[in-house]
Design a protein around this nucleic acid. Structure first.
Lengths: 110, 110
DNA sequence: CCAATATATCAATATTTCTTGAAATATGGA
DNA sequence: TCCATATTTCAAGAAATATTGATATATTGG
């Protein structure tokens, strides 16, 4: 991940509808969700949603698979991982206590 | 952290200069850096940098402390932690394997 | 092949955002 | 108090972005 990738990813997430989409797809996990269902679930018009999904996909935060007429979208956990790694790069310059808690918070109760 | 906080934080980071600032301050750690030094280090005019620092601070991604005439800025690791927690909320809906690797990548070699 | 369904693309408008020059505020020292 | 330094605030112009109606593309079933 380089800087322009990171900006693209952050920008993709920094918008109301797209943030909703990403978090919805995070919750959906491996099941993902069809484009049309996402639009309906979030009360957004179909072409607006398509444009937003395209921004998220180009930024690497979601990915898609065609299933016949339906295109199913998934959160891209690899993309999120790369983004976080980039943001926290060199965070340990002599003081691990600062960055460690950033990660602890996210350890989900799986 | 609620949705509008998250959008504000993501938006703050999704810009060239501000992303540079945040990563610079992550590297600086507890030492932080004076506003003027940040501007000089990144080759940005002083009032432009001030505006950008203000965006980052309002979004909770950096914090500042006055030291006489100088205002010293620091990455706000708590803010980053809250943001990540919000983004990955409910990520474990039945499939921990998906979200676990997101965190592993970031475990820094402290 | 044709019609229906699902999704994407295009062009235009309204909104938001970034940068900058100028001016203001705050602090410390003479 | 007065000046120099460090930083912030303000207003305006230029650039980027989101949404929308209309249209195009892709896939399936009859």
């Amino acid at each position: 991940m380089d800087k322009s990738n990171a900006i693209e990813a952050l920008h993709a997430l920094a918008q109301d509808t797209r943030l909703d989409v990403f978090r919805l797809l995070v919750k959906q996990g491996a099941e993902g969700m069809a484009a049309g269902d996402i639009a309906e679930a979030l009360g957004v018009r179909q072409n607006t949603m398509s444009a937003n999904l395209s921004v998220l996909a180009k930024a690497g935060m979601v990915r898609s698979e065609r299933e016949g007429r339906v295109i199913r979208y998934f959160a891209n956990f690899d993309g999120m991982r790369s983004l976080l790694a980039f943001l926290m790069e060199d965070c340990c310059g002599g003081n691990p206590e600062l960055c460690k808690p950033v990660l602890d918070e996210i350890v989900c109760a799986c």
